[in-house]
Design a protein around this nucleic acid. Structure first.
Length: 207
DNA sequence: TCTGCGATATTC
DNA sequence: AATATCGCAGAC
Protein backbone atom coordinates (compact mmCIF):
# COMPACT_ATOMS: atom_id res chain seq x y z
CA UNK A 1 0.00 0.00 0.00
CA UNK A 2 1.45 3.36 -0.97
CA UNK A 3 0.30 6.76 0.13
CA UNK A 4 0.78 8.90 -2.93
CA UNK A 5 -1.36 11.91 -3.77
CA UNK A 6 -3.65 9.93 -6.05
CA UNK A 7 -4.40 7.47 -3.29
CA UNK A 8 -5.21 10.29 -0.86
CA UNK A 9 -7.40 12.22 -3.24
CA UNK A 10 -9.63 9.22 -3.81
CA UNK A 11 -10.53 9.31 -0.13
CA UNK A 12 -13.55 11.28 1.05
CA UNK A 13 -13.32 14.32 3.28
CA UNK A 14 -15.06 13.88 6.63
CA UNK A 15 -18.37 15.71 6.61
CA UNK A 16 -19.70 18.19 9.16
CA UNK A 17 -21.92 15.55 10.72
CA UNK A 18 -18.82 13.57 11.79
CA UNK A 19 -17.72 16.39 14.12
CA UNK A 20 -21.08 17.16 15.74
CA UNK A 21 -21.25 14.07 17.97
CA UNK A 22 -20.16 13.88 21.64
CA UNK A 23 -16.45 14.62 21.92
CA UNK A 24 -15.37 11.18 23.20
CA UNK A 25 -17.02 9.57 20.20
CA UNK A 26 -15.41 12.06 17.81
CA UNK A 27 -12.03 11.41 19.46
CA UNK A 28 -12.27 7.62 19.04
CA UNK A 29 -13.53 7.95 15.48
CA UNK A 30 -10.62 10.23 14.51
CA UNK A 31 -8.16 7.38 15.08
CA UNK A 32 -7.08 5.95 11.71
CA UNK A 33 -8.22 9.04 9.79
CA UNK A 34 -5.81 11.13 7.70
CA UNK A 35 -5.05 14.77 8.50
CA UNK A 36 -3.98 16.76 5.43
CA UNK A 37 -2.49 20.25 5.06
CA UNK A 38 -1.89 21.75 1.63
CA UNK A 39 1.01 24.15 1.34
CA UNK A 40 2.13 25.99 -1.80
CA UNK A 41 3.58 23.08 -3.78
CA UNK A 42 3.36 20.30 -1.30
CA UNK A 43 0.93 17.93 0.40
CA UNK A 44 1.50 17.07 4.06
CA UNK A 45 -0.41 14.13 5.51
CA UNK A 46 -0.40 11.90 8.56
CA UNK A 47 -2.65 9.17 9.97
CA UNK A 48 -3.98 10.02 13.43
CA UNK A 49 -2.78 7.45 15.99
CA UNK A 50 -3.36 9.12 19.38
CA UNK A 51 -5.89 11.66 20.68
CA UNK A 52 -7.40 13.07 23.86
CA UNK A 53 -10.96 14.29 24.38
CA UNK A 54 -11.66 17.54 26.25
CA UNK A 55 -15.29 18.28 26.98
CA UNK A 56 -17.06 21.55 27.78
CA UNK A 57 -18.35 22.66 31.16
CA UNK A 58 -18.20 19.20 32.80
CA UNK A 59 -14.45 18.70 32.28
CA UNK A 60 -12.15 20.55 34.68
CA UNK A 61 -9.07 19.81 32.55
CA UNK A 62 -10.57 21.48 29.49
CA UNK A 63 -9.50 24.94 28.35
CA UNK A 64 -13.20 25.74 27.94
CA UNK A 65 -14.09 24.83 31.55
CA UNK A 66 -14.06 28.41 32.82
CA UNK A 67 -15.76 29.83 29.79
CA UNK A 68 -14.73 31.80 26.75
CA UNK A 69 -11.62 33.98 26.64
CA UNK A 70 -9.33 35.37 23.97
CA UNK A 71 -7.09 32.33 23.91
CA UNK A 72 -9.74 29.60 23.74
CA UNK A 73 -12.36 31.36 21.59
CA UNK A 74 -12.00 28.97 18.63
CA UNK A 75 -12.80 26.01 20.87
CA UNK A 76 -16.37 27.32 20.93
CA UNK A 77 -16.70 27.32 17.13
CA UNK A 78 -18.90 24.82 15.30
CA UNK A 79 -17.52 21.24 15.26
CA UNK A 80 -15.06 20.66 12.42
CA UNK A 81 -12.92 23.75 12.99
CA UNK A 82 -9.34 23.81 14.28
CA UNK A 83 -8.25 25.17 17.67
CA UNK A 84 -4.49 25.73 17.91
CA UNK A 85 -3.08 27.08 21.17
CA UNK A 86 0.34 28.06 22.45
CA UNK A 87 1.61 26.48 25.66
CA UNK A 88 4.61 26.42 28.00
CA UNK A 89 5.84 29.50 26.19
CA UNK A 90 7.29 27.18 23.55
CA UNK A 91 4.89 24.77 21.87
CA UNK A 92 1.73 24.80 19.78
CA UNK A 93 -0.96 22.12 20.00
CA UNK A 94 -3.56 21.15 17.38
CA UNK A 95 -7.15 20.40 18.35
CA UNK A 96 -10.24 19.47 16.35
CA UNK A 97 -13.39 21.17 17.64
CA UNK A 98 -16.43 18.96 18.30
CA UNK A 99 -20.16 19.50 18.92
CA UNK A 100 -22.38 22.47 18.22
CA UNK A 101 -21.29 26.09 18.06
CA UNK A 102 -20.87 27.51 21.57
CA UNK A 103 -20.39 24.13 23.29
CA UNK A 104 -16.59 24.22 23.73
CA UNK A 105 -15.34 20.64 23.26
CA UNK A 106 -12.25 19.58 21.33
CA UNK A 107 -9.97 16.66 20.52
CA UNK A 108 -6.24 17.17 21.08
CA UNK A 109 -4.27 15.45 18.32
CA UNK A 110 -1.32 13.87 20.16
CA UNK A 111 0.37 11.69 17.53
CA UNK A 112 0.32 10.70 13.87
CA UNK A 113 2.04 8.28 11.50
CA UNK A 114 3.80 10.26 8.74
CA UNK A 115 2.40 9.54 5.26
CA UNK A 116 3.17 12.39 2.85
CA UNK A 117 5.67 15.24 3.09
CA UNK A 118 8.22 13.30 5.13
CA UNK A 119 11.10 15.34 3.74
CA UNK A 120 9.40 18.59 4.83
CA UNK A 121 8.68 17.11 8.27
CA UNK A 122 12.32 16.03 8.56
CA UNK A 123 13.71 19.47 7.85
CA UNK A 124 11.33 21.22 10.21
CA UNK A 125 11.88 18.75 13.05
CA UNK A 126 15.56 17.81 12.71
CA UNK A 127 16.94 20.22 10.11
CA UNK A 128 18.08 17.37 7.87
CA UNK A 129 16.86 15.04 5.16
CA UNK A 130 18.05 11.55 6.06
CA UNK A 131 16.58 10.17 9.29
CA UNK A 132 17.24 7.09 11.37
CA UNK A 133 14.36 4.70 12.04
CA UNK A 134 14.05 6.19 15.52
CA UNK A 135 13.94 9.76 14.22
CA UNK A 136 11.30 8.78 11.66
CA UNK A 137 9.10 7.40 14.42
CA UNK A 138 9.64 10.59 16.40
CA UNK A 139 8.55 12.98 13.62
CA UNK A 140 4.92 13.35 14.73
CA UNK A 141 4.63 11.50 18.06
CA UNK A 142 3.64 14.41 20.30
CA UNK A 143 1.30 17.41 20.06
CA UNK A 144 4.11 19.98 19.90
CA UNK A 145 6.01 17.91 17.33
CA UNK A 146 2.96 17.76 15.05
CA UNK A 147 2.64 21.53 15.00
CA UNK A 148 6.36 21.98 14.34
CA UNK A 149 6.31 19.49 11.44
CA UNK A 150 3.08 20.82 9.89
CA UNK A 151 4.06 24.44 10.66
CA UNK A 152 0.86 25.07 12.60
CA UNK A 153 0.57 28.16 14.81
CA UNK A 154 -2.30 30.23 16.18
CA UNK A 155 -2.60 31.61 12.63
CA UNK A 156 -4.16 28.29 11.68
CA UNK A 157 -6.57 28.36 14.64
CA UNK A 158 -10.27 28.69 13.84
CA UNK A 159 -9.96 27.31 10.29
CA UNK A 160 -12.77 25.17 8.89
CA UNK A 161 -11.71 21.57 8.27
CA UNK A 162 -14.32 21.38 5.52
CA UNK A 163 -12.28 23.96 3.61
CA UNK A 164 -9.41 23.40 1.17
CA UNK A 165 -6.31 24.31 3.20
CA UNK A 166 -6.62 21.68 5.93
CA UNK A 167 -9.01 18.76 6.16
CA UNK A 168 -9.36 15.20 7.42
CA UNK A 169 -9.95 12.23 5.11
CA UNK A 170 -12.01 9.17 5.95
CA UNK A 171 -9.76 6.13 6.05
CA UNK A 172 -9.70 3.37 8.68
CA UNK A 173 -12.58 2.42 10.93
CA UNK A 174 -11.09 0.70 13.97
CA UNK A 175 -12.76 -1.88 16.17
CA UNK A 176 -12.90 -1.45 19.96
CA UNK A 177 -10.26 -4.18 20.24
CA UNK A 178 -7.76 -2.11 18.28
CA UNK A 179 -8.20 0.99 20.46
CA UNK A 180 -6.44 1.48 23.80
CA UNK A 181 -7.41 4.07 26.39
CA UNK A 182 -5.78 5.67 29.44
CA UNK A 183 -5.75 8.78 31.59
CA UNK A 184 -4.93 11.99 29.78
CA UNK A 185 -1.31 13.14 29.90
CA UNK A 186 0.03 16.20 31.69
CA UNK A 187 -3.14 17.23 33.55
CA UNK A 188 -3.92 17.33 37.27
CA UNK A 189 -7.70 17.81 37.34
CA UNK A 190 -10.29 15.25 36.21
CA UNK A 191 -7.48 12.72 35.98
CA UNK A 192 -9.83 9.79 36.50
CA UNK A 193 -11.40 10.20 33.06
CA UNK A 194 -9.96 7.66 30.61
CA UNK A 195 -10.14 9.98 27.65
CA UNK A 196 -6.82 9.35 25.94
CA UNK A 197 -7.27 6.98 23.01
CA UNK A 198 -4.65 5.38 20.79
CA UNK A 199 -4.18 2.69 18.15
CA UNK A 200 -2.80 -0.23 20.16
CA UNK A 201 -0.35 -1.65 17.62
CA UNK A 202 0.96 1.70 16.31
CA UNK A 203 4.69 2.48 16.49
CA UNK A 204 3.87 6.18 16.31
CA UNK A 205 2.66 7.04 19.83
CA UNK A 206 3.88 9.69 22.28
CA UNK A 207 5.89 8.58 25.29
C1' DT B 1 17.41 4.06 29.42
C1' DC B 2 16.03 7.30 32.89
C1' DT B 3 15.39 11.62 35.31
C1' DG B 4 15.39 16.56 36.12
C1' DC B 5 15.34 20.98 34.22
C1' DG B 6 14.86 25.23 31.43
C1' DA B 7 12.25 27.78 28.12
C1' DT B 8 8.36 31.42 28.94
C1' DA B 9 2.97 33.03 26.71
C1' DT B 10 -1.35 33.02 28.54
C1' DT B 11 -4.81 33.05 31.97
C1' DC B 12 -6.66 33.39 36.68
C1' DA C 1 1.10 30.22 40.22
C1' DA C 2 -0.02 26.78 36.94
C1' DT C 3 0.04 24.73 32.44
C1' DA C 4 -3.35 19.54 27.21
C1' DT C 5 5.36 19.98 25.99
C1' DC C 6 9.90 18.99 24.37
C1' DG C 7 14.88 18.24 23.99
C1' DC C 8 19.00 18.30 26.33
C1' DA C 9 22.42 17.16 29.90
C1' DG C 10 24.12 14.17 33.07
C1' DA C 11 23.71 9.84 35.82
C1' DC C 12 23.89 5.04 35.49
Amino acid sequence: MSFDKDFLFNLKKLEREFYLKPVVKVARNLLGKIFVKLERNIVLAGMITEVEAYDGKSDQASHSYKGLNKRNQHMFYLGGHTYVYFTYGVHYCLNVVACREGYGAAVLIRAMEPLLGVEKFSYRRFNKRKLSEKEFQNLLNGPGKICQAFNLTTKQSGKDLLGDEMFILDYKNLSNKQIGCSERIGISKSKELMWRFYIKDSKFLSK
